[in-house]
Design a binder for these strands. Structure first.
Lengths: 96, 96
DNA sequence: TTGCTATTTTGCCAAATTGCCAAGTAGCTG
DNA sequence: CAGCTACTTGGCAATTTGGCAAAATAGCAA
């Protein structure tokens, strides 16, 4: 692939890629409702906590969420709020 | 992962996943400007034509583009136009 | 300190993705 | 028909991803 394309689209593609997994998309939506600790998210998702933690770190690396420590738990927060709007297109846009 | 999450978010995640590659994101943007044949897209991307064709088929499977035959070439077209709007969020939203 | 809870990191392995090449398919032209 | 162009598909190796379990890290409380 040409370097110029890589340069122009990599960062943006990384954000889409991070949302391109059902669990991570769910996590983003859930965090859109309220800030939540990993333990609670783990309960909702049903995967091993290490797996959920890894998904969250992918979302954080993409700049979609961030986190703060509160006592002995880490509270995640949806940083890129417009992700919630994107879904409308991706979900209902098919066929249009 | 819980089946309910899989059911609710898989289709939408698949669309994001399809856009989660620099080349495919570029292709979607390019097709947003005008309908284009594979040969021309190949020239822009710089990958083997088979690679570009495969990327396009991923986009088509996700419902993002479609195609029509015109003589001996295949013209691709951006079907899910709102993809162009998504990018604004993904590109400029970082840090907000 | 020890123990407990919450989270991340590491190791491991199966599965998926990426990209090239070669082969196959489809339409045009002579 | 043969030969050409345009595109897709199959196969392969290299790389990445996804998920679990175990080990490591961090903070709280006794």
């Amino acid at each position: 692939m040409k370097t110029s394309i890589l340069d122009s689209y990599s960062a943006e593609a990384a954000a889409f890629k991070a949302l391109g997994h059902p669990t991570r998309l769910f996590l983003a939506h859930q965090l859109g409702k309220r800030d939540t600790c990993v333990c609670e998210l783990t309960g909702m998702v049903g995967d091993d906590i290490s797996t959920v933690s890894k998904h969250l770190s992918v979302l954080r690396a993409a700049g979609i969420v961030d986190s703060v420590r509160k006592g002995n738990q880490i509270i995640y927060r949806l940083k890129l709020r417009c992700v919630l709007d994107l879904s409308v297109c991706a979900r209902f846009g098919k066929g249009k």
